[in-house]
Amino acid sequence: MQEFKKEVSFVEKNKIAIKKKNMFIVNYIKDVFNGVKSLVVGLRRTMYYFSHHKEIITEQYPDNRDTLVLPDRFKGEVILVHDENNEHACTGCTACELACPNATIKIITKFDISPEGKKKKAIDKFVYHLELCTMCNLCIVACPTDAIKMAQTFEHSVYNRAELTKVLNKQGSKIREGVE
């Protein structure tokens, strides 16, 4: 209650101050004049924008889809880079999986038998849960072979949540020669 009184007294004081100011008719008229002036200044500014349509900054999004360029660093989704021979650079080292804070990536490995009969670790499935990804870029930084990168797509909405779980390595792709 004490505090409440303090607040009230502040408000009261303020009112008294305002009253004092308004005691003189000159001040009264000055108040009115200055008040109106400040309003007119605001009105002038909005009128400027009303009449200057070149200031409009709206982007017409779905219409400008074709010309829309996102900056090359924009973090849209993680992709595994494939070249024209359907080869990628992922060795299956799971560094990205470990770096990811939300278990977005799951690397399922298998063992390829090379023609010489040597067993070699390779990815079977690079599972990526887009719905869990926070686009933090940590996996990209962690990858020693730069196999993955961020794509600039952003229209990710789908009707079924399961569609957001993606397998990033394409059908029949294999690791590029010479990537260790």
């Binding site: 909005t46 009303f50 409009i56 900054i57 709206t58």
Partner: peptide
């Protein structure tokens, strides 16, 4: 319309 133009929108 008035609102939009004042607010630099379309």
């Amino acid at each position: 319309r008035v609102a939009a133009w004042i607010q630099i929108r379309l």
